[in-house]
Amino acid sequence: MKHYETLYITHPILESGRLKDTIMNVQKLIETNKTNKILCTEVWGKKKLAYPIEKQKYGTYVLVQYSGNGESINNVNKELEHNVNILAYLTVEIDKTEIHKQENEIDDQISGFSSDEKNNKTNEISKIKEKEKQDQNNNSTENKDETTEKSNKETTNEKTKADELKSE
């Protein structure tokens, strides 16, 4: 069993509904071989291409990671080549450690680009609140901390002294 990932660029005209269709089509295509298992799909969003492909300057990047025995990869690549909606693709074998975790569902990822800013704002607010809470907790426990720190320092000093003696 090996792990693979395919990064492909879809046509910039595709909007949320049709984009999802093409993504699902590619997933089905990969899963036609029963040994293949899809581990993760990530939509990177619309990006400017480094050079125009089929006269398009922009494209939506999608990353699919899957595991399988590699028999069907030639077929998958052929189908991607003939798909009109896909400008370019790249299939690479990857290490186990490089596998991403599926964090959001595809729908959220596609619709998320417009609402990303909102989410970030809410996250920031919640983070600030958490920090405030932590500060309050810290204030109450500061006195305890000081005493524990002192004792820690003493023990570390003793240790270092002992080490020095040993080395000598």
Binding site: G59, L87, L90
Partner: peptide, 11 residues
């Protein structure tokens, strides 16, 4: 060279 193939970097 891989990144160039998928238009992340320019040729």
């Amino acid at each position: 060279k891989k990144a160039r193939n998928i238009a992340l970097l320019p040729y």
